[in-house]
Simulated scan of single mutants.
Amino acid sequence: MSQARDLPDTIAVFPLSGALLLPRAKLPLHIFEPRYLAMIDDALKTPQRLIGMVQPFESPSGKESLQTIGCAGRITALSETEDGRYMINLSGMSRFRILEEVGGFTPYRRCTVNWAGFGRDLGKTETDPSFNRPAFLKALQRYFDDQGLKTDWESLSEADDEMLINYISILCPFEPEDKQALLEAPSLTTRRETLMTLIEFAMRGGSADEVMQ
């Protein structure tokens, strides 16, 4: 599945607040609600095995709406617990733009989507030519200490630019709207700049909501 034309026009979507999937990154998920267990079962029957991760938000009317842009992931690992829950890994394939929600008889939500404009997601690993890795890791260490977070620093130091920036974007406990900003970043450089803004602002004790306005 290296071309946008190989991707389906309609996919199941999983609205999960604060969860971020990025192209070429992995996201582990614990599935236990019956409607999403059905979603996984149905996805496994398709050639692509895709699930679209989307940030939900509450509209002024109080209805749960979906952000326009999400990221599709391929189910690449699955294990089942004794009580019927699924532990899965999604491997990020490509971002998409939601065109409309599809009605039907499935207990989960489905949308028609457009993959145009996200061609680089299906290409080679991105680089960040202006990335100052030592300064980034130093700031990250301070942030993790401040937030009480732990990680494998040796693995991080060995990761390539894209893997490092995307992993930290997924891992950090930012607000859903900040996660959406990281998802929509047009390049790896832009994502890293957004990420650093969020980290620096959090270290100053500010609200992440103020950063993205």
Rank of each mutant, 00 (worst) to 15 (best):
Q213S: 13
A202T: 11
Q141H: 11
L140D: 05
T46F: 02
K150A: 10
K124T: 13
K138W: 00
S155K: 15
T68I: 08
L99N: 15
A185Q: 09
I165D: 02
R109V: 06
F96G: 11
S59R: 13
D42H: 08
Y143I: 01
R120P: 03
I40Q: 09
Q141T: 11
D152T: 11
K179P: 05
A202I: 02
I199M: 14
M53Q: 14
G92Y: 01
S130H: 13
F201I: 08
K138C: 07
R191H: 04
T10D: 06
Q147K: 15
M53E: 05
G117E: 02
T106G: 06
E82N: 01
A38I: 08
M212W: 07
V13D: 01
I170Y: 01
V13C: 09
P173N: 07
L29G: 06
K63S: 12
G148V: 11
T125N: 04
T76W: 07
D128P: 08
L122N: 02
S187F: 01
G52H: 11
I31K: 10
L156C: 08
L156Q: 10
K45Y: 03
E58C: 05
R24Y: 02
S169V: 03
W115I: 05
F174K: 07
E193N: 15
I98Q: 08
R5H: 11
E158P: 04
T189S: 15
D41N: 12
Q55W: 09
E193M: 08
I199S: 04
L182F: 03
L29A: 06
D9R: 11
R97T: 15
T151E: 08
E126Q: 14
